[in-house]
Nucleic acid binder design. Structure first.
Lengths: 228, 228
DNA sequence: ACCTGAACACCGTTCAAGT
DNA sequence: ACCTGAACACCGTTCAAGT
């Protein structure tokens, strides 16, 4: 007999029929709606199921528990942010350090503010176990292209670019998240953008390795065509 | 009759007899023990009350709800961190920028790591509404002495030191919190300390105002006696 | 293959009854 | 003044019964 093991932590069945696929889609959509309209405190399996127009039992057929449900929303959101970073990293490849930093910071801040409602609603679950895992794995995925673009930079060199990249990603993410969650609005978008630019640039300038031959410092951004 | 209003959101009575004072102390202690031994997921009013050796009813006589209970632990922890910052700010008054930054970063990182267990356990509640409020008000309280020491710096000048200070506090706090909550240990204490030094120093160098007459740049730390 | 909803265990909070 | 603990409402999760 094939794998008679207990049904324990299996990530639940995948939808195979049409109606079940639409059930999953409805649950996804309902999750976001409940989050936006009621907030995480009222993010209840019964409430989400009701909003999706299905029974709780159906919900548990596709999501093993409440955390997995919220994790789905988190993952979608973080994947969007990852996409922005990856795209901008391709665009700014080979440019000067300041251009790279400004371009990336601006893109990320803009993207985050476009999703400010959902970002706010996700603040609490992001700190829970499952959410923190998603955050960490996304940070690792973002650090890769960022490390690459740092290495491609035409006017600076770094030792251990990957570690620098990871720290920048974590630092900027947590800063933006805290700023967005702050209901007193101590930092608006423009102020945060300006300070994040200075913080990342200042950090990288502090950390850059002595220039080797072949890279020219303090020059015009070399005429390297951006990738594709 | 004096204030016949409803008993709604009153922060509960203060202990006036000896036994009730000890009940509050026991609840405080039990909260920390439950948090450390069972984690926030199992931080239950019934569990805390049982651990403290009192009934749930007693708990609700002094804490209006579960959030207020965890908030008490959060506040104590953040107050300790605030104390460290205030003390170090007094010690490093008038020193050079790099000395100030290194001294403060080192002190804060060391203090946080001495409380790493409770810091980890508090990661989730820190993101909840009540916790975020505590974090924000503590950040404001920390920014004040930090702004002052930045203004006292003997080899750099800043416009709007308070805003810089607030952003540094928020940035460093959230970075440390994320690093500590990370169970995969991507950043150990020493690495984080080194990077935080560079990040804060780089940021401030990027943000410093042009030197006015009267402050000397790139000098030995002027022989200014630290306060008291 | 998928859906339903009653049922169970557990938790936050209250309140009448005690000392 | 303070404590107790049963009671209530609500939530996460399961599972026998359906189509």
């Amino acid at each position: 007999m094939p794998t008679p093991g207990p049904t324990q932590i299996r990530p639940r069945k995948q939808p195979v029929q049409a109606r079940s696929a639409s059930t999953v889609a409805a649950l996804h959509e309902a999750s976001i709606q409940v989050l936006l309209s009621a907030g995480y405190r009222k993010f209840t399996t019964t409430r989400v199921a009701a909003r999706a127009g299905v029974s709780v039992g159906s919900l548990y057929q596709y999501f093993p528990n409440r955390e997995a449900l919220i994790a789905a929303v988190i993952e979608r959101h973080l994947d969007e942010m990852l996409g922005i970073v990856e795209q901008r990293c391709r665009e700014f490849r080979g440019r000067a350090l300041q251009e790279i930093v400004y371009g990336l910071v601006d893109a990320v801040v803009a993207a985050k503010w476009e999703r400010i409602e959902i970002s706010r609603a996700l603040h609490e679950p992001l700190a829970e176990v499952r959410g923190a895992e998603c955050v960490h794995s996304t940070a690792l995925k973002m650090a890769a292209p960022l490390a690459e673009i740092l290495d491609s930079c035409c006017d600076a060199t770094f030792d251990d670019a990957h570690r620098l990249a990871l720290l920048i990603v974590i630092s900027c993410s947590s800063l933006m998240q805290t700023a967005i969650a702050d209901t007193t609005d101590s930092f608006d978008k423009e102020i945060l953008r300006a300070h994040m630019r200075a913080m990342v640039l200042g950090y990288l300038r502090e950390m850059r390795a002595p220039m080797p031959a072949g890279k020219t410092s303090s020059q015009m951004p070399a005429n390297v065509a951006p990738l594709r």
